[in-house]
């Protein structure tokens, strides 16, 4: 599975959707991912890829980890894998 497929699977599970209902352009808001589900997504991403994601629930937009869409999350995770596994 690609990074994108894995992230779609993680978000779909939290949103109670099928992976086929989630596309790279989907936003978390559209998918109905609330703040608690988002924290669980971040946890699952860290576990899946064995990385540390900079994320503070007090201000999700402040972090360099861009959660504006599935695509942006995939890019951010790929960058973190490259940086932290280097």
């Amino acid at each position: 599975m690609s990074v994108e497929d894995k992230i779609i699977a993680i978000v779909a599970e939290q949103a109670f959707l099928e992976p086929s209902d989630v596309s790279p352009s989907s936003t978390l808001e559209e998918l109905g991912v609330d703040s608690m589900a988002l924290v669980e997504c971040i946890f699952s991403i860290e576990e899946e890829f064995d990385i540390q994601v900079p994320f503070n629930a007090n201000d999700p937009k402040a972090s360099s980890f861009d959660i504006s869409s599935i695509k942006s999350i995939v890019t951010a995770v790929e960058d973190l894998i490259a940086a932290q596994k280097a």
Binding site: V39, F43, F55, N56, N58, D59
Partner: peptide
């Protein structure tokens, strides 16, 4: 785990607060 803790200080009511 809850991601609500600040790593750098407690700043109640301040616009810069982060947990």
């Amino acid at each position: 785990g809850l991601r609500v803790m600040s790593k750098d200080g407690c700043r109640p009511f301040c616009a810069t607060r982060n947990g």
